[in-house]
Design a protein around this nucleic acid. Structure first.
Lengths: 150, 150
DNA sequence: GTCAGTGCAAACCCTTTGCAGAAAG
DNA sequence: CTTTCTGCAAAGGGTTTGCACTGAC
């Protein structure tokens, strides 16, 4: 299990795997960072900083809050994880960096992946002068049927 | 200038216009709310709560911070404006409720409208059971050329 | 007169920061 | 040994809340 230098997911959870992943992204694999990476990459999911903190320290105190934020910010900057900004109250971190989109259930706050291949954008408008596209995020906001909305 | 009961923008800024708009959305048009609505609907734009506060109180103190937040939340809940959650630090309020999308310049934080017609989604995946779509947000993240990124 | 709306300030909560101690190479 | 990382606690900043006052009808 290896060769996932830039794209993620195939089941990255062994310690050596996340260490390889971090090294390939230019991140020094310290003990705390490995713990955090293992929690994130255990499976495709969307975790807030608070949730990562709880996961990592489930059994015993391993990582402090400051380190959680520092590390998640570092992972995002280095492209190891993706920041999902959908909930005004907190940022979610997504270990799946392969292009994909999201369903967002506004009732429950639940976030689900949508494979990029099933949301083809047929036309993209010209970009403002002097800029280059960095990525496209598509969020389909959904609601439970018969929701007490409006 | 009238007949904009549910969709916005054609140049809504006269006091009577915003009052009609609010009434048609079931919002009692108080003095402060009218001031806030006039600031928002003066033109298509994306304003944070802080910016609305500054705009409304530019000449003299008219509205308090609490009322800004209460009113913007009310407007969003009633569908008068749209909340744009792109910047983890703050929410933007968009007076244009007609379907449309956004360019987001990650360098400058600038937000620009994209007409919905120029971003056709060719296929939308099936929704999770028991849910209905409420809307689709497309955000094209852009960056200045030769940006010192990564 | 009654109910809804507003203002002020304090509370909240997620996130960031400063700095001393610990770990990586 | 030097540099980078971590932890603690305190600060920061946008947003929310509690409660008394004011305004809408």
């Amino acid at each position: 299990m290896s060769d996932m230098s830039t794209q993620t997911f195939a089941g990255v959870s062994a310690k050596s795997d996340v260490i390889d992943l971090m090294r390939s992204h230019g991140i020094t694999p310290t003990q705390q960072r490995v713990e955090i990476a293992q929690a994130l990459f255990a499976r495709p999911q969307h975790l807030s900083a608070e949730q990562v903190l709880a996961l990592v320290n489930r059994e015993r105190h391993v990582v402090s809050k400051a380190t959680i934020y520092n590390t998640l910010g570092l992972f995002a900057a280095k492209g190891l994880v993706r920041e999902i900004i959908i909930d005004p109250a907190k940022v979610f971190y997504d270990p799946t960096t392969r292009p994909h989109h999201h369903f967002y259930n506004v009732d429950s706050g639940e976030l689900m992946d949508i494979d990029a291949s099933s949301v083809a954008l047929s036309s993209v408008p010209e970009l403002p002068a002097g800029t280059v596209a960095e990525g496209v995020d598509v969020v389909i906001r959904i609601r439970n049927c018969r929701s007490p909305a409006e």
